[in-house]
Amino acid sequence: MALIPPPGAPIRRSPRTDDAIDWDLRDPEALEASRGILTTTVEKAIAWAQTSAIWPATFGLACCSIEMMHTLSPRLDMGRFGAEYFRGTPRQADLMIVAGRLTQKMAPVVRHIYDQMLEPKWVISMGACASTGGVFNNYAVLQGCDKVIPVDVYVPGCPPRPESLMEGIDILRKKIGANGQVPSSELIAARRAERAEWDAQHASDALKGGPAN
């Protein structure tokens, strides 16, 4: 079988249409409204269980994955949060950590892996390249993996320190713990308020000079 189709041959496209991608990338508020909000003890217990056992997919695209491996090492030990079990198949994974620049060529593959993961599933976009393309603002690199898969948490850095990724997993656990019962806008507002509170406490520090000219 020829790898390169002859000229004029019909181009075979993925059966997945743009509509399916749009459905995944739909407004989270609308998604939550369509689901309806049910606060039951069972759901809370399920959310608690899910926060305590996030199994990521074994999946690295570039240098960020080296830092992702470091997060598993004894020094930081992601296993303390139940996330140490990197699964070899996406069918057993809950979390996809997009670690590295996502090229145009790799994008369908990532989308395919994401489709193979079972619900509920979450995505962390790790590093500048996965989040926005980073320095690679060119024809080959997708400017942000959220163009093909829905992203829950963005971790900036180039690459992020392992601690940064752990913080990303930490805020993801907050999101999973809320389990759709707290709208994501409230989570974002809570994060903003946390930062504002810190700023208010240290507002006077802003006037303290800095490095000498």
Binding site: S131, T132, G144, D146, D152, V153, Y154, V155, P156, G157, P160, R161, E163, S164, E167, G168, D170, I171, K175, S184, L187, I188, R191, R192, G210, P211, A212, N213
Partner: peptide
């Protein structure tokens, strides 16, 4: 003018790109 410096803070994760 040494107006911008890089601090040591590395915990910057957010739920949205806009917040970054």
């Amino acid at each position: 003018f040494d107006a911008i410096t890089l601090e040591h803070s590395y915990e910057l994760s957010e739920y949205t790109r806009e917040a970054l």
